[in-house]
Structure formats: C-alpha cells, structure tokens
Design a binder for these strands. Structure first.
Lengths: 120, 120
DNA sequence: CCCCATGGTTCTCAAATGAAACGGACAACG
DNA sequence: CGTTGTCCGTTTCATTTGAGAACCATGGGG
C-alpha cells in the first residue's frame, strides 16, 4: 500500500511556497472551493444548500468543507442539538477573502460573458 | 442512461454560470493556471520558465497554456523564427487579472504563513 | 415499527494528473 | 556530415481525483 508517497503532497507543497498567491491556491486551488466560500458570502451555510447550489457531488463537497474547516476559512458549528446538525460559516479568515472574491467577480463580469453550451 | 454525459463538461458548465466568480473559475479553477498567470506578471513568458518555476509536468503545463490561450488570457507569439519558438504573454484580459491576483496575494500574505508541516 | 428528511460516507469506474521517456526542429562543434 | 545540447512540446503508463448513486446514522411523524 504505497499510497502515502505522493498523496496530497502537491497541495502541501504549495502551502510552503514563497509566493502568497501560491499559498492561497493551496486552499482554494480547485474548481469548487472558492464557490463554496462565495456561497457562504451569500448566506448559505448548510451542506444541502451548497450541494444544491453547486451541483457538486456530496463526496467532493464533504471533502472540500473539511478542507476549508481545516484551513480555518470556515467554522463548523451545530445549529441544532437534537438531530445534531452542523452549519459552516465564514471565519474572519474567510471573510477576509472578500476583496479577492470581488476582484475575481469583477474580472469574470468584464471578461467572461455568459455563453450557452447549446450554441457550441 | 449515459452517466458519462457530464464528465469534462463541468468546466464548461461553470463558464455558463450566472455568477461571474464561477465563470472566472472556469478559466483559473485549478491549482496551476493562476500561478502561470502570476508568472506572466513576473515577466516570465516561455515554456521552460514556467516549467522550472512551477515544477509542473510538461504535460499539464502544455494543457494549461493552451487553455489560457484559448480563453484569451495569454497570447502565443513567436519570439524566434528560425528555431520557431513561441512565448506566452498576457493579453489585456490577462493583465486585467491584476486586481484579483493582488487580492489573493494579500489574503495569502495575511492568512497563509509559510509552514512546511502543520495542523496535521 | 416503517417511512421520510437531513447530513454525510462508501462504492465503482472514468477522467485528470504526475513522472518520465520520446520526438522534432535547429544550432554549435568537430 | 554526425553527435550533442536546447527548447517545446507529446506519448505512455501508473496513480489520484471526481462523478454518480447507493448506503448509513440520527431523529420526527404515523
């Protein structure tokens, strides 16, 4: 079972990079993570809400949420004790993402017009 | 049923999303693409320079460069005619990434201290 | 008890990725 | 001319990640 050699080393290698952009990518460097953060800014906080919003598989969503919590971007807190349900909310670290997110939003708005796949 | 319908379409689906952030992620939503753009801002423009800088495999670098050119973020131009070599330079669309990149840099600087191993 | 809803986890298989070798154009050297 | 070296990729094959859906756990309602 030599699966530990190159398991997630690329991600961790980025976290140790000299460049702060690379270190940021160690957290949000995939298709979905930043969109989860965006949803959090849009007042979404629960597993099902993210899942519905993103159309992401539960498998991947579960993994990304864990990663974000581990990275300190989100906090996992119970919002119900009897069925014991958790929600995911931005930490200060997560809220500090706002400028970068707005920068990306601005760029997307300016340079990525909505194109339908049907016309392709 | 064709369960293989939406395989690589997730990227294209993002490009048609209502949210400009999602559409931006359709271009830069992976580990490396944004770092290539960053390198371009740092005056790097050639295949070998990116490869050395990122430690990325040539395979993936080739793919990402093509994707960026296709997305209009980079331009592929010959800088030598006899050996016919190309370099990759930012377009206006690419240069407009600066604010988002600076936002990410700022966040990384503030919230992602360099650490080789932690929170294990 | 069974059924439903929420919040995940586990399973299988296809696609993406990584490592490293290969290819091809050209230039310098002898 | 043939060999070596540079630059820019492509090909091959093993591993990792992702998609899709079933499954598990908890609790409420009937």
């Amino acid at each position: 079972m030599k699966r530990t050699t190159t398991k997630a080393n690329r991600w961790e290698a980025l976290a140790a990079d000299w460049c702060p952009v690379a270190r940021a990518m160690a957290v949000i460097g995939d298709r979905w993570t930043l969109l989860i953060v965006r949803d959090c800014f849009l007042e979404k906080s629960r597993f099902e809400q993210f899942q519905t919003s993103l159309g992401i598989t539960r498998h991947v969503l579960s993994d990304r949420l864990k990663r974000l919590v581990k990275a300190g971007v989100l906090e996992r807190n119970p919002y119900s004790h009897k069925p014991l349900r958790y929600d995911y909310r931005l930490t200060d670290k997560g809220r500090d993402f706002a400028p970068a997110l707005l920068g990306l939003k601005d760029w997307g708005k300016r340079h990525m017009p909505i194109r339908t796949r049907a016309s392709g």
